[in-house]
Amino acid sequence: MIALIEDWLKRASLDVQEYVRLLGATARGMVTQPIYRHDIIEQFDAIGVASLTVVLLTGFFTGAVLALQSGLTLDQFGARPVVGRLVSASMIKELGPVLTGLMLSGRVGSGIAAELGSMVVTDQISALRALGTDPIRKLVVPRVLAGVLMAPVLTVVSDFVGIVGGWIVARYQLQVATGLYWSSIWQALYMQDIWMGLIKPFVLGFVIVTIACHVGLRTTGGTQGVGKSTTEAVVAGSVGVIAVDFFVTRVLISLMY
């Protein structure tokens, strides 16, 4: 039993060490030549633009259902007109960043782990190195840059369509006047909330992509290993999003409120 625990601890430490080394190599790759600009642009498209549909749908329906549910509760206190305030605060501060993070973890994290994992098991990563290319610079740096910079953009989009979804429900289901809905949002929106909603996705994007790259690059065991890495990237990325969200929220509250 002790041997098993010891073995698990060793593997976990090695994993953390490898992850930290990957982060170090990625940081170096971002500030030194060569930089593969074409790959960076490609990844902005693959991670950012291609994730737009899933983020739009998730944001819209989350905002709508939030308005629907909170409308019922607010009715008990005669506070139905402030439904906009509740929807916007929830979306901007918490649900927008976290749900976008979870969607990215599912769509982007799995894709990265599967792609890099397949390249490892088919020797394409070794071939890259043999051809004089550093796989971290060519594959990891563009994905991390795209993840870190596109996650906030997607979050803003998600926040906006979520509030629009909430407005549609508030207007046509809860019969809240349009002016009242939007003015309640405007009155309740504080700068700290916006900062919180903008800072979080940078960190979440970084966590999702670096975990997926790390898991993908240490894939072993053929196609079965690729499947395992893909699942692991989604699970670790999703748990990472929730956990990191808590810690970042805690830090931001102590700094800004």
């Binding site: 020797d123 071939a127 190195r129 043999a130 051809l131």
Partner: peptide
């Protein structure tokens, strides 16, 4: 690894199954 890149310029490798970039 960075210094190996120069050495690899004089080496070509044909991998098992080709390892072509998909």
């Amino acid at each position: 690894e960075e210094d190996m890149m120069e050495v690899r310029a004089n080496l070509g490798m044909v991998f098992q199954e080709g390892a072509l970039f998909d």
